[in-house]
Design a protein around this nucleic acid. Structure first.
Lengths: 165, 165
DNA sequence: CGCTATAGTTCTATTTTAGAACTGTCAATC
DNA sequence: GATTGACAGTTCTAAAATAGAACTATAGCG
């Protein structure tokens, strides 16, 4: 399967994976959320090859996750900042970090601690249900085809009344 | 950078990315959370090559995300089920799906809807602070080096009292 | 015996990535 | 006015990963 094909899949996970589903994109986003913005800064802290970095930045810009804006004329220099679409990736990044904190730390403990400035405490991200506010477990969730499912509308629409047939 | 190097990074994101930071691992996990368990079932719904599927399953088993258990003797047949460590990836999967729901759907709408069986409603995942219960925004979070940071303990320990020098 | 199902492995061709060096613009320095 | 350094890339070759298809092995069924 090509990367382009992923974008076309009738699945929100596949489509998101098409945007950020490789290690370098995720690592670049980590740097973005740590307030890094410049090509050489990314390159220095990640050890990514310059070629791939240029490639991934282009891709993230193309998908609207980053915006490339000049911060200096003559010579033209650009930096990459998160758009709102990019900022919305924060729960993904934090849940990835949190899983690592729980399952991948060595005896020395967590490499980083996150302070919630609003309440002043070190915190963990917690995923809750938007409707009832309770934490969500996988086994408590049932998945239904939505309006954008492949053929969901068509087949349902045609067959609803005669579904027993 | 090699995949192995990622595991060694003093960063919970990098270490998690070493486990699930490629498109196929994430797609396989999607299938796992949709209750798929068998080699051919994965292969059929993902279109992944058999070679890569075998490889990724081995990797996920090696990291303790999946467990390979026989469900039939003679001939030996195995299926792959999520361990607790694997189930703990649910917030990651759901936040990826949610971002796609918000930013990558076409005019037809969401491919899938998630029902929270506990409260009976379609829901979105929401990330809140474990301490104060409020939704967390990237700009409200400050990151501190933790005990497992590279040289964090050593340099802090030696220099604390003479940090101005 | 031939057919199907399952869970892989093996093969070659193509694509991606790694690693290093190179380009071009400008500012500051010698 | 040549030299150095910062920055944001591009270009090159070699190594690694992936795609796509075929093949293996075991067993049940007709």
């Amino acid at each position: 399967m090509k990367w382009d094909a992923l974008e076309e899949e009738p699945c929100s996970l596949a489509r998101t994976v098409a945007v950020i589903g490789d290690r370098w994109s995720l690592m670049i986003l980590r740097e973005c959320f740590l307030r890094k913005r410049r090509f050489d800064a990314f390159q220095a802290s990640l050890g990514i090859t310059r070629h791939l970095l240029a490639d991934r930045l282009k891709k993230l810009v193309r998908f609207g996750v980053l915006r490339r804006i000049p911060y200096m004329e003559a010579p033209k220099r650009y930096e990459y900042i998160l758009t709102q679409k990019g900022l919305d990736l924060y729960p993904i990044i934090m849940s990835i970090v949190h899983w690592g904190n729980i399952h991948m730390v060595d005896s020395r403990g967590r490499p980083m601690l996150h302070e919630h400035k609003t309440c002043g405490k070190y915190f963990d991200p917690l995923m809750i249900c938007s409707e009832c506010g309770e934490p969500v477990l996988a086994k408590e969730v049932h998945v239904h085809p939505g309006p954008g499912a492949r053929e969901a509308v068509a087949s349902k629409g045609r067959k609803t009344k005669a579904s027993a047939a």
